[in-house]
Structure formats: C-alpha cells, structure tokens
Amino acid sequence: MAGNSSRTPQSTDPNSRQARIAEMRRAEKARERRNKAIAITLSTLIVGGLVGFGAWVLIDQKQEEKRKEAAAAQLRKEAEEIRKKPVEGEQLWDVKKLGRNHVETPVKYETVPPVGGDHHPRWMNCNGDVYKTPVPEVNAVHSLEHGAVWVTYNDKAPQAELDKLATTVGKTPYTLMSPVKEQNGAIMLSAWGKQLTVDSADDPRVKQFFTKYVQGEQTPEPGAACTNGLTAK
C-alpha cells in the first residue's frame, strides 16, 4: 500500500530572493521619481533665477540709460545757459566786415593773432591739435572759419598753465594750440570775430569761451572739417 505523499508549498518568505529583487526595483523607481522631481524643481528655480536676473539686468540698463540721458540733457542745458552770457573781457569784431576769400597770397591781419579775414584754401588741422611751433596764420584763420577755437601763447606764459591748456585742447575737437611770440597777452583764445586774453588755464572764462565758441553760432561754416588739413610739428 503506497503511502500518501504531500508537497509543501513554496515559501512566501519576504526574505526570499524574488522578494528582495522586487523590493530593490520598487526602491529604484522611487529614487528615479525623487531624482526627477528634484531635477524639475532645480531647473524651475534656475530658469526662474535666470529670468529674474535678466529682467533685473534690463531694468538696470534702462535706468542707466535714463541717468545718462538726464546727465546729457543737464549738460546741454548748462551749455545753453553759458552761451547766452557774454564772456567778460572778450573783444568782438563785426563778422560781416571780416573777409572770407580764399587766397594763396600773403594776408596782412589787423590783430595778432588774427580772428578772421581772407585766408588760405587749406585749413590747419584743428581736431585737438597741439603745435609746438608757430603755424601759418592764413591756415589757422581758415580753421576759425570752420568753428575752431585757437589757443595761442607767448614766452610769458608759465609752462604749468600751458600744460593744462594742452590737455584741454587735446581732448576737445575743433580746437588747436600754438605759440605766437608777437602777441601781447601771455595766453589768448581766438574764435571767428572773438578774442580773449587770460593769465591762467584755470580762469573760468576759458571754459566759457570753449563752450560758447567751439562750433558756436559765430561759425561761418558750421560742420566743416577740422581734419585732412595742413599739419605741423
């Protein structure tokens, strides 16, 4: 008589290999979901930060542009006020009586240095040019016709003052500077039909003269070039 045989069902012990694998897969998926959520959150924060930073930069740029525009407007306003006021001590000539013919013959001027009159067809370069030697009057007068201010000096002018003036001229378009030994004043500033004598580069009238007459209303040929003319050492 055969004995009865029975099988014991497979164990469902959670520590079994299959159970451990399943648990590892669940944990891996949970990590993936967590990492994905973290990545999305970080990306959102980064993008938000970049957008915020970009907006801040644009706002700052616009504010800086407004500040510059306001400063430029203020400078224009101040310059306009300066131009309305006469320069104390300046000498004035009737510009209608100053000749403006282009000639290639010598010209005898009434003043030293001259403030206008007939002149050579070629102008002296006056784009902030500082000349160490005398320049031809007939060419410098042509520069005045283009709206330049001509700074001249004689042997009485202190070198320290000349250095300051040279710096100012060097950074100011439509100006030139050169020695004129025969002039009466130590330092003289000339524009077309205008002239001022000073003793110091710090005289506030120097700034006023530049502001008023560099390409000022007295200019016979506003906008004409101050480059591509005659140059000298």
Rank of each mutant, 00 (worst) to 15 (best):
Gly3Leu: 13
Thr8Val: 10
Pro9Lys: 05
Gln10Gly: 08
Ser11Tyr: 00
Asp13Pro: 06
Ser16Met: 12
Arg17Phe: 11
Arg20Asn: 07
Arg20Asp: 12
Ala22Met: 11
Arg25Ile: 12
Ile38Glu: 07
Gly49Val: 14
Leu50Pro: 06
Gly52Asp: 08
Gly52Ser: 05
Phe53Gln: 09
Ala55Cys: 15
Ala55Trp: 12
Val57Ser: 13
Leu58Met: 07
Gln61Pro: 15
Glu64Asp: 12
Glu64Ser: 08
Glu65Ser: 14
Arg67His: 13
Ala73Lys: 03
Arg76Gln: 10
Ala79Glu: 07
Glu80Gly: 12
Glu80Pro: 07
Glu81Asn: 06
Glu81Cys: 02
Lys84Ile: 13
Pro86Val: 04
Glu90Gly: 07
Leu92Asp: 15
Val103Ala: 15
Val103Met: 10
Glu104Lys: 08
Pro106Ile: 02
Val107Arg: 01
Val112Gln: 09
Pro113Leu: 06
Pro113His: 04
Gly117Lys: 02
Asp118Cys: 02
Trp123Ile: 13
Val130Met: 00
Lys132His: 10
Asn139Ser: 07
Ser143Asp: 05
Glu145Cys: 11
His146Gln: 03
Val149Gly: 03
Val149Arg: 02
Val151Leu: 05
Tyr153Ser: 11
Asn154Cys: 01
Asp155Cys: 13
Asp155Thr: 05
Lys156Glu: 07
Pro158Val: 00
Pro158Phe: 04
Leu162Glu: 01
Leu162Asp: 01
Thr172Asn: 04
Pro173Gln: 07
Thr175Leu: 01
Leu176Met: 11
Leu176Tyr: 04
Met177Ile: 01
Gln183Ser: 00
Asn184Gly: 14
Ala186Cys: 02
Ile187Asn: 02
Ser190Thr: 10
Lys194Met: 06
Val198Lys: 07
Ser200Thr: 08
Ala201Leu: 11
Asp203Ile: 00
Arg205Val: 04
Arg205Glu: 03
Lys207Gly: 06
Tyr213Ser: 09
Val214Thr: 14
Val214Trp: 01
Gln215Ile: 03
Gln215Tyr: 07
Gly223Glu: 01
Thr227Tyr: 10
Thr231Ser: 12
